[in-house]
Amino acid sequence: MRTRLNELPRWRAYIVLGLTLAAFIGLLMLALGRAPVVPAEAATAAAPEGDLVSYQRIIERLRGGADYYTAAHEVLVADGYGTRSVFNWRTPAWPVLLAALPPGGGQGVLAALALFGLLLVYRMLREEGGVLVAVLSMLAVGISLGGIVAPASVVFSEVAAGTLILISVAAYGNGWRLAGLLVGLLALFLRELAAPYVVVAIVLALRQRRWNEVRLWGLGLAAYAAYFGWHWWMVSQQLGPMDRAYGDGWLQFGGVGFILATAGFNGLWSLGPVWLPALLLPLGMLGLWAWPKGTLALATVVVFVVLFAAVGKPFNFYWGALYTPVLMLGLGWAVAAVWETLRQR
């Protein structure tokens, strides 16, 4: 099996493994020194001020016939959100879709998407890395996507967008570029925080001179700009004397601590011990780097990780759902690459 790790001279491969081990130890020390918070439990806590409960209330009002922006404004103001910024208002696509579905329908949609994504992952990695890599990575990704068994997780548009980003990466990996592009745009329409993935995909298309794809991305971004502009205008129509702005912005520079928190919001992996994200983050990134055709996946994770070092408030750790399924693609490659390197004589 060919990986970037075991193609290196042996001494360089051991340096890479040493750096990975050092990253794990550093993250482990940080994780053990933090207050014991389990992201999965925090995400499903019924705190009145939490995003989860607020958007559950908005969805219930939509099911009762309310307009999205009217319902969102009433709930966000009542729950103390800084509604003067449009970025504190979710775009309506995902809440409106959830409200249109019967109870449990959102879980059904995400389950179908997750299953489709896993099949794409297996097909992609079976051809490149063999059965072992495909099965290990598919299992790791499946555990990451398994968080949708909790009904509350469906409310988070980040979970839906992260599932779509995974499908887009796998579609690209299978050579289905148009499908990858369209699914990536859909993720953006569900959550603007999918924008870093879109930027990565466009940069790679430019680098490889895939001009037709670049033009299609341009059309998609123009459509999204119109959609977000309409969203901005609709929000502005709701603002009044009861609306306030947050005293601080989204630039929080949470650094490695916040990165580790986002890595911990990782489906059923979140139920593991507190030190598990400290292992999965460097190991997953090692595997994505070792994967010869993993450039899109690796760049996606790196961009999100770097972004979250600066952007995001402490309670936004659930943003990790945007990149953790893609991160888990690297586990199978990491196991295979380390094994092949250590067995060399």
Results as ranks from 00 to 15, higher is better:
Tyr68Cys: 12
Arg10Ser: 02
Glu74Val: 05
Thr341Pro: 11
Ala337Thr: 08
Pro282His: 06
Ile15Thr: 13
Gly82His: 11
Ala100Tyr: 10
Ile165Thr: 02
Pro277Cys: 02
Gly264Tyr: 00
Phe116Asn: 08
Leu188Pro: 09
Ala100Thr: 12
Ala152Tyr: 04
Thr262Ala: 03
Leu185Phe: 03
Ser144Lys: 08
Arg177His: 11
Leu125Phe: 05
Trp269Lys: 01
Leu136Asp: 10
Ala161Thr: 00
Gly80Thr: 00
Gln344Phe: 06
Trp275Ala: 15
Leu185Tyr: 02
Trp269Ser: 03
Leu118Cys: 12
Val326Ile: 14
Ala171Leu: 14
Thr20Ile: 00
Thr324His: 11
Gln344Ala: 13
Tyr14Val: 09
Thr70Asn: 07
Ala225Lys: 06
Arg34Ala: 14
Val198Lys: 00
Pro196Ala: 01
Thr341Gly: 13
Trp232Gly: 09
Leu271Ile: 09
Leu62Pro: 05
Ala225His: 05
Val306Arg: 08
Tyr81His: 14
Trp11Glu: 01
Ala134Phe: 13
Pro292Met: 12
Ala299Tyr: 04
Asn266Tyr: 05
Leu206Asn: 00
Trp176Val: 06
Leu279Pro: 04
Ala179Arg: 12
Leu190His: 08
Gly257Arg: 14
Leu281Ile: 12
Ala46Glu: 07
Thr3Tyr: 01
Met234Lys: 14
Leu239Thr: 03
Leu166Val: 07
Leu97Val: 15
Leu251Asp: 02
Leu329Asp: 03
Val311Tyr: 15
Phe304Cys: 03
Tyr122Pro: 00
Ala99Pro: 13
Pro92His: 07
Leu298Ala: 07
Phe315Leu: 10
Val37Met: 12
His231Phe: 10
Gly117Phe: 11
Phe265Pro: 01
Ala35Phe: 09
Ala46Arg: 08
Glu49Val: 04
Ala187Pro: 01
Phe87Gly: 03
Arg177Asn: 09
Ala46Tyr: 06
Val311Trp: 15
Gly264Ser: 04
Ala297Leu: 05
Phe317His: 09
Gly312Lys: 07
